[in-house]
Design a protein around this nucleic acid. Structure first.
Lengths: 296, 296
DNA sequence: CCTGATTACGAAATACGTAATAATC
DNA sequence: GATTATTACGTATTTCGTAATCAGG
């Protein structure tokens, strides 16, 4: 049960074919075939069903796959843990919602880089759902997501508290005006791609206003979305701090929401079982300090 | 990061030397040296400190070791999971307290073997503390231990409920007689080796009787202990069912205890994260059925 | 000198790559 | 005939084992 074999196995399983896997692994078909056959011989059962358009997992293969993935993740982590002598350095992958990345992270990341220049930090923005999955499977060391999160394998700390506001074009001076000036079915909702938590909040508010599930447009970036709100394509819901950044807040109006919808906590999540990397600890220290100075 | 290298690494770490490791791994010194050097080169730091009487782990080595062990455990489990097609078969390691093994398991294991002859079941008796550790590190698939157990990684179900009784030699006809006939410091306590839960209960009862922490003798086996109780070497605490087995209950007296001490639940524990082996599922099915028929 | 780790080097095993083959659509 | 997996076989790399060497007590 060598790691090389497990990696080829995972790759074939993911790409559904030996040819494609060989390409990704920078080797040739015959080699991949042999590695798979070696694994099958060792385990004593077929892992793939061969058919003309590639390979699909058998039952045994499906049972093996999660082990192969966990072992690969452990292997990566093991190297980092062994190298980690307490001095923050090496790679650190952080995830964030688009909104948090826009307003909260710039100063935090700058400070982090100033203090620990040896850490190669990479930031990935995605929706809360994607980020949670990425932290769980080890492809991110930690992430900023919208609370609440309840998961046995995740440790979460409150990083920021945001006030959610409804954002409309300039011409809507109040919520009442908006309600009066829109059709029965309500305004168009502009939302992030599936998995975004703010989107769910927006749907709750729409329901409360008596607007049926409205037409939605999905965006991948924050700036695109705000631009379209300014052009009165529709409305959206965002943290107040995001909207109040200089270059956008003059083109839109913000509207306070009632208490149950108004607040959302941004959590920093990490895996409980992961090694406490020095780099990650350093990041948490920066975060704590920023919180403390913000509170003062 | 190949498994072979990690296995040699673990072995050298455990045995503290390349020569001893080579012997256990059925290979030669030079080979072990090379595998270790390959790992060190891959990780980029020394994993052992070399000194004249062998090798000891460096900090990096200590950080790597738990990963190596977890990966080895996963590797073993992966093979079993892949091979497990739903038909109970293959190896199954169950642990049990000595007392449970004596009175509860014989019929259960017989029934299990009748239903699933393809499973090679091995039983290991040890104390609750040892069993919990063994289940956690994967060397046991499940175990019968004394409750309560609270651990995030363990799933526990109540398997049996036992009435704990104080066991003395024949001549002590009542608790009162025992208290009158023993010195100020109380009778000698006969207990299992460290880690046994019944032992803790016994200490509580002794404290309640005003006996200071009494002289204790430790035993490894149930029969040895009961034999010594019969010979009036001391007293012990055991489930009633254990004592009432035919061949011992004539030589000793049993004494009921007050409610808080009287009952203890025997739990069956297993790891939450482990693959649900068919063999283990079959075992649980047998257990459920025995419970149901006992209740009827 | 004895124990135990490392180095050197040839032998064996294994993995890899090229190319031909088979199978399926 | 295009796509994809397998087989055959030669080459390259890696691992393994023997034996010599080095280091510490």
């Amino acid at each position: 049960m060598e790691m090389t074999d497990l990696l080829t196995f995972s790759t074939v399983a993911r790409l559904g074919g030996i040819t494609r896997a060989a390409e990704e692994l920078n080797t040739v078909q015959s080699n991949v075939t042999q590695r798979i056959k070696a694994l099958e011989a060792e385990i004593g059962t077929a892992l793939f069903e061969r058919h003309s358009r590639g390979m699909t997992l058998t039952g045994a293969g499906r049972r093996l796959l999660p082990y192969a993935q966990r072992m690969a993740a452990l292997s990566r982590e093991a190297v980092l843990a062994a190298r980690d002598d307490g001095e923050p350095k090496g790679p650190l992958s952080i995830g964030s919602m688009e909104t948090t990345a826009a307003v909260r992270l710039p100063t935090l990341l700058a400070e982090f880089h100033r203090r620990y220049p040896a850490v190669r930090l990479t930031l990935r923005t995605a929706t809360t759902a994607d980020l949670v999955a990425a932290v769980l499977d080890g492809s991110l060391d930690g992430a900023f997501v919208a609370g609440p999160i309840e998961h046995a394998e995740l440790a979460a700390t409150v990083a920021f508290t945001e006030e959610l506001v409804l954002v409309t074009a300039q011409r809507w001076t109040s919520l009442a005006a908006l309600r009066a000036g829109t059709p029965e079915s309500g305004p168009t909702a502009l939302v992030f791609r599936t998995g975004c938590t703010y989107r769910q909040r927006l749907e709750q508010v729409f329901t409360e206003f008596g607007w049926p599930s409205a037409v939605r447009f999905e965006f991948g970036t924050l700036d695109g979305m705000i631009g379209c709100v300014a052009a009165d394509m529709g409305v959206t819901m965002l943290p107040r701090a995001v909207v109040e950044r200089d270059h956008v807040h003059r083109d839109v109006n913000i509207h306070k929401l009632k208490a149950p919808h108004a607040h959302v906590e941004t959590l920093f999540i990490q895996r409980r079982t992961a090694h406490q990397y020095s780099a990650l600890q350093g990041f948490l220290a920066c975060l704590d300090q920023q919180e403390a100075s913000a509170a003062a």
